[in-house]
Computed example of a mutant assay.
Amino acid sequence: MKDRSQPAPIAPVSAARTIALALLLWTAISMLGALQTYSDNLRGGIDSHYPALLATWFLEYAVPLIVLSAGLSLALSRWPGLTERPRHVFALFLGLVLVFQPAQWTWMAWMRGYLDIASLGDVWQLLRKMLLVGWFSATGTFAAVLALHTWRRARERELAWQRSQTDMLHLRLALEEQRMLALRAQLEPHFLFNALNAISALVRGGDTALALGGIGRLSELLRYALAASTRSSSTVAEELDFVRGYLDLQRLRYGERLQVRIEGDGPLLHDAACPPLLLQPLIENALRHDLDCRAGPGDIRLSFAQMGNALAIRVTNPAGPGTPANPGAGLGLANTRERLRLMHPGASLQAGLQGERFVAEVRLPLAGED
């Protein structure tokens, strides 16, 4: 089993790239520094050679800082958690002060020929001479590497968060699509079951001719339902045509008792998008709680009206004293409400008693409206 406490190995390409970048950066800085020194010498009348100045700059100043920047970068790549806590950063800074800085002074003193020490006094003089040499460049390099590492870590976290949000969005969309398909799978057999019930009632009553006509009408409705099941949306005008065919089929069962008044049918319905098979469950619910619950002719009303930026669709039917307080809690209306929510966050279905009538009202945002 892999030991998770061990640091991950550094990829060779990554380590080589880090060292190469540090080498290029400090070589460029050495070239600029040597050029500045050469220019100052010219203005001061001092004879100097640029290649020699460049070699001095690179060997005395750049080499230690190349070691610092590359080594610190590689260490942070291998142990990225070193900057997560303040005490770890402080420990790194102590290493800079107690280990790297004396090593840098020793290197520069050796390059300048200052290591000819004969007494403790010579050591003290060397320490005073080298005390501030390279201090600002070393601490600046240290701070820059830590800042770059912190920025990279923050960027990685941000990208990881964005990827997780994108993955969650894709997953949610996939789940919503599956829920929509499941709702359709529930709705279509439910509609078919009720339509077959209407035809079977005619067969039991001996109305063979009417039953055959109902089968023909049912085949037309099923063709539309199958076509609609492959689409994500329809128009209210198409759904109204489907409902008229559905009512013709139900009229074979109920006869003259089935009375449905449709108001507000106009051009607006051709532009209003809606889920497929939207109106049929509303009409079916009205039939079930009107004609199936009482004798005499029905009184179902279907109306369309523009209300601001939405199309309001109302299906109402009488609700007698014995009508349940919420007769719209069945499968048809529950599925319709969920399908509306999935189609558009601004779409809704409200159902309940209003006086002596049960009202189911759909609000559909019109095209171009959020």
Rank of each mutant, 00 (worst) to 15 (best):
M1Q: 03
D3K: 06
I10F: 00
V13T: 14
T18F: 04
I19T: 11
I19N: 01
L24C: 12
W26E: 01
T27V: 10
S30A: 15
M31W: 13
Q36V: 12
N41H: 10
P51A: 00
T56P: 02
T56R: 08
W57R: 08
A62C: 06
L68E: 03
L68D: 03
A70F: 02
L72K: 08
W79S: 09
G81I: 04
E84S: 14
F93G: 11
L98M: 11
V99T: 05
V99I: 13
F100S: 00
A109R: 00
M111G: 00
G113D: 00
D116M: 06
D116V: 08
S119T: 15
L120G: 15
D122F: 04
V123D: 01
V123W: 13
Q125F: 15
Q125P: 02
L126T: 06
L126F: 02
M130V: 01
L131D: 02
L131F: 10
T139Y: 06
G140A: 12
G140V: 09
T141W: 08
V145M: 07
V145Y: 03
R153Q: 15
E158Y: 13
A160Y: 05
R163A: 10
T166C: 06
M168F: 10
H170G: 04
H170F: 13
E176N: 12
M180F: 15
R184T: 13
L187Q: 14
L187F: 07
E188K: 11
L192E: 05
F193H: 13
A195C: 11
N197G: 15
D207P: 05
A211Y: 11
L212D: 15
I215D: 00
A225D: 06
L226C: 00
A227K: 09
A228D: 06
S229E: 08
T230M: 11
S233D: 09
E239I: 06
F242M: 05
Y246L: 14
D248S: 14
L249W: 00
Q250H: 14
Y254A: 03
E256N: 10
R257P: 01
R261T: 15
I262S: 07
G264C: 00
G264F: 02
P267V: 01
A272K: 01
A273K: 08
P275G: 04
P276A: 04
P276E: 00
L278W: 02
L279W: 03
I283S: 02
E284P: 05
D290V: 06
C293N: 07
C293M: 11
R294E: 08
G298W: 04
R301S: 13
S303R: 13
G308R: 09
R314M: 05
T323N: 13
T323D: 14
A325E: 14
G330C: 08
R337V: 01
L342R: 06
G346L: 07
Q350P: 00
G352P: 07
G355S: 09
E356S: 15
R357V: 02
F358R: 03
V362R: 01
V362K: 04
P365S: 08
L366E: 01
D370H: 11
